[in-house]
């Protein structure tokens, strides 16, 4: 079945079965591999993308439910003012280790800062709780979100 998606500002048509998770449409059909598969059950956040600006677990979002929505992935987040600040903070603090979860971490962090431009450490812990990092880069993630908030203000 044919579906039309608006992703990173472009309109794409894909042939997929109804019920296909957005994650696999993005990764296998569109071959945009920045969005990661970690658990498939919305328990790790590696697959986080924005749907109409809201951080969303793409492994539990189905192609039939998002026609017409604006989807943003890690590949385009640098075009967002907050996204660019988050990426800059991530580089300043060398947050990444293996890096596999970091696309999802960054997409969630952008969502947090959009809602709460000046979060506390507790705000970060609470909002980012669902994004797992097996390398345990958490304290740098926390510091980098707070740093991104400063960059945004500057």
């Amino acid at each position: 079945m044919s579906f039309t998606l608006k992703i990173n500002g472009e309109t794409k048509t894909v042939d997929a079965e109804p019920g296909t998770p957005l994650l696999w449409v993005i990764r296998d059909d569109l071959k945009m591999t920045g969005t990661k598969f970690g658990c498939g059950v919305a328990s790790c956040g590696a697959c986080t993308v924005h749907v109409d600006g809201e951080p969303t677990r793409s492994c539990q979002t189905y192609i039939d439910d998002i026609e017409g929505a604006e989807i943003t992935t890690i590949e385009a987040i640098e075009n967002d003012r907050i996204g660019a600040a988050v990426q800059q903070a991530w580089l300043e603090l060398d947050v990444v280790q293996c890096g596999y979860c970091q696309s999802g971490q960054i997409m969630s962090a952008v969502g947090l800062l959009r809602d709460t431009p000046k979060p506390s450490a507790e705000d970060v812990d609470s909002y980012m709780w669902g994004n797992a990092c097996r390398c345990a880069t958490y304290q740098r993630i926390r510091a980098a979100v707070l740093r991104a908030s400063e960059i945004m203000e500057a």
Partner: peptide, 15 residues
Amino acid sequence: RRLDSPAKVNGQARF
């Protein structure tokens, strides 16, 4: 700084 950081924050890193 880590050499692998830039590609790991913009989705370009290839696993």
